[in-house]
Design a binder for these strands. Structure first.
Lengths: 85, 85
DNA sequence: AGAAAATGTTATATATATATAATATGAAAC
DNA sequence: GTTTCATATTATATATATATAACATTTTCT
């Protein structure tokens, strides 16, 4: 199966939480270079790794990863605020 | 990284929708034997494949896959019904 | 009963993710 | 200025997911 390229917000979320790649890597149990590969979207994580990242940030997988390029979180927030008028 | 074993409801969801493995396999673009491996939980899907399955069933990844053994869907339903008393 | 379809299972080859090492660059600290 | 830390990047080895084939077993249909 040809894997589609997936997009993610790992870099953004990591910075929000003021973590270095090394620190994040330790929390999710991978090599710190692997975090680099993921942030640069050079390859996709396994589902297990996606779950670890999701657990680490306390956010659902769909908020972190997506099949389409991700809009800025601020935009997404505004969409929700407008929804409940 | 040692991958954790993940659990899923693919078999249940596929049967609800009355699909054969072959039919489901075609919809998500993998070999039909791969569906077998996934249903038997012999290995985890890639994140991309998890997204395809999620899209195919119209359900979030977290409802289909989990890091802990999955309770019957009926139980999960009752938990939600009780929540809104 | 027999044919056809679905499933279970094993084996092997290929594709992709992950670990590790090595090196380069840039920023911050002092 | 040089030391330290974070990041970027490349290369290679290993682990894991996926494709494919082959065959056995079960279920369904007639």
């Amino acid at each position: 199966m040809k894997q589609r390229k997936l997009y993610n917000r790992i870099n953004l979320l990591r910075q929000e939480r003021k973590l270095s790649r090394k620190e994040l890597a330790e929390k999710i149990g991978v090599n710190f270079q692997t975090v680099g590969y993921l942030e640069r979207e050079e390859y996709n994580p396994s589902l297990d790794l996606a779950f670890r990242i999701s657990e680490c940030f306390g956010l659902p997988i769909e908020l972190i990863f997506s099949t389409k390029p991700q809009p800025p979180l601020s935009e997404e927030l505004m969409r929700w605020r407008n929804k409940e008028e």
